[in-house]
Amino acid sequence: MSSKLKLGVPKGSLQDATIALFKKSGWKISVSGRSYFPTIDDDTIECSLCRAQEMARNVENGTMDVGLTGKDWIAEYGSDVHVVSDLIYSKVSAKPARWVIAVSHDSPVKKLEDLEGKKISTELVGYTKRYFQERGINVDVEFSWGATEAKVVAGLADAIVEITETESTIKAHGLRIIHELMQTNTQLIANKEAWKNPEKRAKIEQMAMLLQGALVAEKLSGLKMNVPADSVDKIVSMLPCLKGPTVSHLYNSDWFAVESVVETSVVRDIIPALKAAGAQGIIEYSLNKVI
């Protein structure tokens, strides 16, 4: 067994987001030209690009020790891998994506049972077949090579099973969602033999911790401010921090320095309120990792 950890980087839509996440986590991955073997600034890791749909299979058979792929593709092939960590991130939102069944807006189909004997187009063939078989509904499931939403419009299928985050593409094609099959998000997975190797497991656990820390940090911001003594209690009570804010005396002054970490989504509302309560010199700063 190679002493280096073989890391699979998902090629395609998740590639840029994955490389950016690793950068925040402390690793610089560089992809050059059409090479399938990116470089990484860590002598204990070697990288390969791999489609997310094939990642679980390659991790399962040992071609790669660890990789990132969707929960959906693990379910599609029933891959026997060790799930190290859920990593909820995407290009559009921080919510899990959904695999849904959609039909044309004017279709008489209202529920799953109405699809009896109908044709369904999808990239998620294996999972879709099992889903309907378990419910005793006979359908014809065909593989779609792309542009799946257009299959119903073109009359090539009665329904589609497609992944969506915002539903915008589905609605743009005049389709209507009738059922959700599953929710999916990115997962860090490991080969089971590699997981048994103490050296590789330690590296994988380090990777999982730092990736999760970077993801948590994306939703948080740091705040620093100067506060007069008579406003400290009021301002501290206004800060929705992780634990308690850091409060310390300013040198040779009756003012205090207050520092806290808050959700980025509340910053635009809380800064004006803090200023109105007496805080001055308010600084917002971004975070790389929160462990």
Rank of each mutant, 00 (worst) to 15 (best):
W73L: 06
V92Y: 04
A159V: 12
R51D: 11
E54I: 00
L49H: 05
I282K: 14
A214E: 11
G117E: 05
Y131C: 00
A190W: 11
Y89A: 07
K4E: 06
P228Q: 05
V153S: 04
P96F: 11
S13R: 07
V141C: 09
A273Q: 13
F22L: 10
G78R: 04
K192L: 13
L7R: 04
I235T: 03
I45L: 04
D80L: 04
Q183H: 06
Q183Y: 15
L215K: 08
S2I: 01
A56D: 08
I270L: 09
V92R: 04
S3T: 10
K71Y: 14
P228H: 04
I74C: 08
M55C: 00
A229R: 05
A214I: 13
G278P: 15
V152F: 04
V31M: 03
P10V: 05
D42P: 15
E46R: 07
K219I: 09
L220K: 10
E134H: 00
I120S: 15
P228S: 02
T44C: 01
A277R: 07
I283N: 06
V153Y: 04
L239W: 10
A276W: 12
G146L: 12
V141R: 04
G126K: 07
G67N: 10
I170C: 09
L188H: 11
V81Q: 02
I283H: 06
